[in-house]
């Protein structure tokens, strides 16, 4: 077990190290988030937006900023022809969990930059910061869990970007809708958040379990 954990850590460290050296995904993530946020701030920043509008906007920014970066970890392995090396050296379960952890780290990085900027630029403050952060964290975890297996699936295709977006959409709706609803409640206050949080907790458990079972086939075929 400890060897397996060590292998996962080695893969995450390798991905982080390569990412910090090339900024392949990080640049796209941060630039897209800031550009979108500035555009939203310039066009809607003067308006008094409803909590539901704020919740929708912040999740739209997170979704579109993260798409390319989340897809990149597997695509880069295929394009640089290192995927075959990884298949020979690493167990499929190690690859899946390592890439999932890397996606979670990328989204955590995005949230650390995006949330304070959004609050300042849009001049909005959630009723409960703790609940707001919880919604963001759980929603992003769901996003990472679904996109990891999709990224592995599309990495061998010719039109990777378009296919990733098309395949992701139906799989991400069940996590996006409760994320937006829970974030809206975090902005306006209220007690009915728990129902949405339950969905946000259950969704990644189901998706990760299924992905874990399917990954070996997706990765090796």
């Amino acid at each position: 077990m400890s060897l397996w954990v060590n292998s996962v850590i080695a893969l995450v460290v390798k991905d982080v190290r390569c990412e910090l050296r090339t900024r392949y995904g990080l640049n796209a993530l941060v630039l897209f988030a800031i550009i979108t946020l500035v555009v939203v701030g310039l066009t809607a920043g003067q308006e008094l937006l409803s909590p539901s509008m704020h919740a929708s906007l912040i999740w739209i920014i997170i979704l579109f900023s993260s798409m390319q970066a989340l897809a990149s970890s597997f695509i880069r392995e295929e394009e640089s022809r290192t995927a075959q090396t990884l298949r020979v050296f690493a167990a499929p379960s190690v690859v899946f969990v390592g890439k999932l952890v890397f996606s979670i780290l990328l989204l955590a990085f995005l949230l650390v930059i995006l949330i304070p900027l959004y609050i300042v630029l849009m001049d909005v403050s959630p009723q409960s910061l703790l609940r707001f952060v919880l919604c963001m964290a759980l929603g992003s975890f769901g996003l990472a869990s679904a996109t990891t297996i999709i990224a592995a699936m599309v990495s061998k295709a010719t039109v990777k970007g378009a296919l990733f977006a098309v395949l992701s959409f139906p799989l991400l709706l069940p996590v996006l809708l409760p994320s937006i609803a829970a974030t809206e409640i975090a902005f306006k206050g209220g007690d009915e958040m728990w129902g949405y949080l339950k969905v946000l907790i259950a969704y990644p458990i189901v998706v990760i379990t299924l992905s874990f079972l399917l990954f070996e086939y997706v990765w090796n075929e």
């Binding site: 190290r17 390569c18 090339t22 022809r81 290192t82 075959q84 090396t85």
Partner: peptide, 14 residues
Amino acid sequence: IRLVSPEAELYDDL
């Protein structure tokens, strides 16, 4: 089993 092949590359950024 280990395979050395022209199709299996190592990491350029390491």
